[in-house]
């Protein structure tokens, strides 16, 4: 895990805070922008946001940990969002999770040693008719089988190697 005194470039978040810091009720919006900028919410950024909006870091942390969208750790190059909705569950999402774990050696919430993949179980993605489904960096892969899921991950690994 990253050190807590990570030296994030705070100038990146300044324009966001200039725009929203004085508008009441904007904390979630600010955190969403921060995560878009840094890929996650580094501790020093959380402190900085708290300072700018005049709240305690505990309060900001409280909001950040309440919502599943926010991450406190960096993620891999590819973020695998595996749908755990009802339709996916009925159609075998557990087997897909097992296949991903077998292929990458990671469980829910973990990042692979090579820093390429992070697995995150998510609530319904809303593509129920294509279940089981996973979304990797915004692209949806449907009608998965364990073999198909492994194949997709291998292709991405190859792609990353070439880059």
């Amino acid at each position: 895990m990253d050190c807590c005194c990570n030296n994030s470039d705070l100038s990146l978040i300044m324009p966001v805070l200039d725009k929203y810091a004085d508008t009441k009720g904007s904390l979630i919006t600010i955190l969403q922008h921060a995560q878009e900028i840094y890929g996650y919410l580094p501790t020093d950024v959380i402190y900085y946001i708290a300072d700018r909006i005049g709240e305690s870091p505990a309060k900001v942390m409280g909001v950040a940990t309440f919502y599943s969208q926010f991450r406190l750790k960096p993620v891999g190059k590819y973020l695998i969002m595996l749908c755990q909705g009802t339709a996916c569950h009925v159609n075998g999402s557990q087997k897909i999770e097992q296949a991903i774990s077998d292929e990458l050696g990671i469980a829910d919430g973990e990042t692979s040693d090579d820093g390429l993949f992070t697995l995150k179980n998510v609530a319904c993605l809303g593509c129920c008719s294509l279940s089981p489904v996973m979304m990797i960096n915004g692209e949806t892969y449907g009608r998965l089988t364990p073999d198909k899921a492994k194949e997709i991950l291998r292709t991405l690994k190859e792609k990353a190697k070439e880059e």
Binding site: K24, G25, S26, L27, I28, T29, L31, Q32, V63, F66, Y67, S68, Q69, F70, V122, A123
Partner: peptide, 18 residues
Amino acid sequence: AGAFVCGEETALIESLQG
């Protein structure tokens, strides 16, 4: 930002208020 409970109307209002 991802919380099922925010479908409840007063929770949704709290979330709207950040």
